[in-house]
């Protein structure tokens, strides 16, 4: 069981809501206790987690309209396979942040390590800082907004969803990309196999504007370039064999 060490009205909850937060101190409770509590039927409300201390698998498998704030750094797979609720991490996140997210939002105020939002099927992942290598690898519908830069091999085999990068992108961006769309404001070190720059249409400016707004960003859509699949690798052709 979670050791409830008290409730309080946290500063980030609008005063008008009158909501109180469940406070879980991971110096007192285990990650197992926290996750089990978050998986209980009809769980809801505001949760605050302290002393996260880089622990792994914090707040994974949420499937409820809860709002969880983690005050500190998290280890691997924070908010993994997330559904419905909102998770805010006030710190940095380790490998595989919000991996396979289905819906809801996950927001990191610091940096995220590699494979952020890997294979995500839906929802929104916002990283205010930078993200490491393989950000959005095999993404399947998730939207990702990175305030800083992303590492190499990001959006590798990205199938669906949108990746927005307000800084720069590392090498081999969008290698073997399928139908995901990538927007980068800064420079791209290099594009991966079958990933090309594409023209910005009205619908792209519009969706990018919505994504930036959802992530609380102030950049303008017109400052970005769009990248996506040339679709040359969709069917094997001997003349493309060097691209494999």
């Amino acid at each position: 069981m979670v050791t409830l060490i008290g409730t309080e009205t946290p500063a980030y909850v609008p005063a008008a809501s009158g909501a109180t937060a469940t406070l879980v101190d991971l110096a007192e409770s285990t990650v197992r206790d926290l996750n089990q509590a978050l998986h209980e039927p009809h769980v809801q409300g505001e949760w605050t987690v302290t002393n996260s201390d880089g622990k792994h698998s914090i707040a994974v498998g949420i499937d409820a309209p809860v709002s969880v704030t983690i005050e500190g750094h998290v280890g691997y797979y924070a908010a993994g396979m997330h559904q419905k609720g909102d998770v805010i991490i006030r710190g940095n996140a380790g490998v595989g942040l919000a991996e396979n997210i289905m819906s809801g939002t996950v927001h990191v105020t610091g940096d995220a390590s590699q494979s952020a939002a890997a294979t995500g099927h839906g929802g929104l992942v916002v990283i205010d800082g930078n993200a490491g290598a393989r950000c959005g690898i095999s993404m399947k519908g998730v939207d990702i907004v990175v305030g800083g830069s992303i590492g190499h091999m990001s959006a590798f085999m990205a199938q669906a969803g949108r990746l927005v990068v307000c800084g720069d992108a590392g090498d081999a961006l969008g290698d073997s990309i399928y139908e995901a769309r990538i927007y980068v404001k800064g420079t791209v070190a290099s594009l991966g196999a079958d990933c090309v720059e594409k023209p910005m249409g009205g619908e792209h400016l519009e969706e990018l504007g919505q994504l930036l707004a959802a992530a609380g960003r102030t950049e303008q859509p017109s400052e970005f370039k769009r990248y996506g699949s040339a679709r040359n690798l969709y069917h094997f052709h001997v003349d493309n064999s060097t691209a494999y």
Binding site: N35, H39, H56, S57, G61, G75, Y76, Y77, G80, G96
Partner: peptide, 14 residues
């Protein structure tokens, strides 16, 4: 890493 991944899957499925 696999050890951590198994830990995550166990956590998700209680």
């Amino acid at each position: 890493d696999l050890e951590i991944k198994i830990g995550e899957l166990r956590e998700i499925t209680d």
